[in-house]
Amino acid sequence: MSLISPAQRDALAGWLAHERGIKNAAENTIEAYAADVGGFLAFIAAHHGGTEGLGPLTRLTASDMRSWMANERTRGTGARSLARRLSAVKTFFRWLAQREEFDPTTVLSTRAPRVQRPLPRPLSEEAAKAVIETVGELPREGWIAARDVAIVTLLYGCGLRISEALGLLGADAPLPESLRIIGKGGKERIVPVLPAARKAVDDYLRQCPYELAPDAPLFRGSRGGPVNPRLISKAMEQTRLQLGLPATATPHALRHSFATHLLNAGGDLRAIQELLGHAALSTTQVYTGVDNARLMEVYSAAHPRAKRG
């Protein structure tokens, strides 16, 4: 930080005061911003050969940005942390550009490294069943407990995304033996509904205190509005704490568990791909954690040339 010029240090302090006062940023966020942007300014000063005023910051090049990012990676900074630091630098430069009246496009157009989001790990069959039972035993109003049981049963029993389950309407009840689901990108699929899922939804419908109009959400919040997905995540969080499950036991992990358990039971990978609504088989492969040997078994069983061989 000693390389940073007084003008740059003042600018950083002014921006942090802006974030603290105007944006009401939390103190730990301010501390992270100070470290991230301070480190960037120190690198740029050293990269350019010493302390500088604000002028050079207005003339940064794409090469400067690449050098900083390469230096960060050399120091062992992971993709997620580097993306966070770049985001802080961009936020600082937006503020500085308005104040100093320069074009910050070079900084703002710098692309963050791709961050590979870890997929939730599937639960065991025993754990998935325990989750559904425990969700229904959480301390809250009876009909809300029945609602949450119905939702998590649909996630595990039908492989629905949380948005798809919460997107069901009153017109979908009582649930038929198969549901027409519109998934990501408007992709349509038909999903069989297990008797256990239909029963769970029926139990909820009997207890729900609100009138379920055909064009209104099937699942209701405590005040009658749509259910916030965060409520289901919270119920899962409480459940996994009670059961001693890892933090990866999220609502989305139930969808993974649905696919993985079907595959382990001998289900066809392409059929599971259709049930999940995946456009590519490779996505289903990653999703279920299936290995290449199993994938080749499916290929060999389905491909005409493989059959002839």
Score class of each variant (00 low, 15 high):
Leu12Ser: 06
Val201Asn: 04
Arg240Phe: 04
Phe102Met: 07
Glu31Val: 07
Thr250Tyr: 00
Thr77Val: 15
Gln98Glu: 15
Arg147Leu: 01
Gly136Leu: 01
Arg308Trp: 09
Leu138Cys: 06
Ala271Val: 15
Gly55Val: 05
Pro139Gln: 07
Pro122Ala: 06
Ser5Asp: 05
Ser5Gly: 15
Ala88Ser: 14
Leu179Arg: 15
Thr248Asp: 04
Val135His: 02
Ser222Arg: 14
Leu123Gln: 01
Thr91Arg: 13
Ala271Arg: 10
Tyr156Pro: 05
Ala88Pro: 01
His252Lys: 00
Trp15Arg: 03
Ala146Leu: 14
Ala88Gly: 09
Thr288Tyr: 02
Ser178Pro: 11
Ser81Pro: 06
Leu212Cys: 15
Ile232Gly: 08
Glu211Arg: 15
Ile272Thr: 02
Gly289Trp: 03
Ser222Leu: 14
Thr248Phe: 03
Leu275Met: 14
Asp103Val: 12
Asn264Gln: 13
Thr260Lys: 08
Leu41His: 01
Gln8Asn: 13
Met65Cys: 07
Pro118Asn: 02
Ala150Tyr: 15
Ala83Gln: 00
Asp103Leu: 03
Ser163Pro: 03
Ser5Ile: 02
Leu175Glu: 08
Ala145Thr: 12
Ala253Cys: 11
Gly244Pro: 07
Gly50Cys: 11
Thr51Lys: 01
Phe40Leu: 03
Pro229Cys: 11
Arg223Ala: 14
Val201Leu: 01
Cys208Arg: 09
Ile190Gln: 11
Thr284Ala: 05
Ala265Gly: 13
Leu262Val: 02
Arg99Gln: 13
Val298Cys: 05
Ala280Asp: 15
Arg121Ser: 02
Gly38Asn: 01
Ile272Gly: 01
Gln8Trp: 03
Leu138Ser: 01
Trp143Thr: 05
Gly142Met: 07
Ala150Cys: 13
Thr74Ala: 14
Lys307Asp: 11
Ile4Pro: 03
Gly53Asn: 09
Glu164Pro: 11
Val193Glu: 15
Pro226Asn: 12
Pro118Glu: 08
Arg308Thr: 13
